[in-house]
Amino acid sequence: MPIIEDNTITADTFLTGIWKENPVFVMLLGMCPVLAVTNSVINALAMGLATTFVLLCSSTLISLLRNAIPKEVRIATYIVIIATFVTITDYVIQAISLELYNALGAFIQLIVVNCMILGRAEAYASKNRLLKTLVNSLGMGIGFTIALLSLGSVRELLGNGSLLGYSVFGEAFQPWVVMILPPGGFIVLGAWLLLFNWLKERKASLALAKEGGLS
């Protein structure tokens, strides 16, 4: 039975990952790296880029092979493909900077089990053509990176008084150390989720009010 593919690529294909289905703020996927490595902007950025790279590469390969993979072994195949690109990323980061590698710790290897990537493979790459998958994955990756950066910048700013290592508030600032400790991750994530849901609800209620006014 041939799968009917919708091949139109719209702006939404790309933007859905950044806003409507943002992997962190809307779908709440991949929480482990989100909470663990966002204690500074540079760590968040490196993690976001590494995840985006793995997501793009694995989606590409899975999309290309989508008709050849029997569905009984699809998850195993996806995991092998994802693990391959994670290992490659691991080596490349070591070659770029050992300091960065040490800062990210075990979380590079743990990209393998980032459910956002497997989710994309299962829900999107295995059903769509290459170009569409690439556009969508890029959007998702950027959305993930933006989310990590929004956490990382707030936590570094409040917890260390700096951004990207440059002091912002000067010497007199007493940093909120809790922000760079694990609880800070939860607090900041909670605050961002509150903001996003409030925006969404407001939009919905505005739309409803408009509808009510018209009728």
Binding site: L65, I69, V73, T77, V80, I81, T84
Partner: peptide, 21 residues
């Protein structure tokens, strides 16, 4: 076909990892 798929993907994976290493 399952064996061929898994074997093929594993071989491709090994090749890529060794190359990067």
């Amino acid at each position: 076909s399952m064996i061929i798929t898994l074997g093929g993907v594993a071989m491709l994976s090994g090749l890529l990892v060794v190359l990067t290493w």
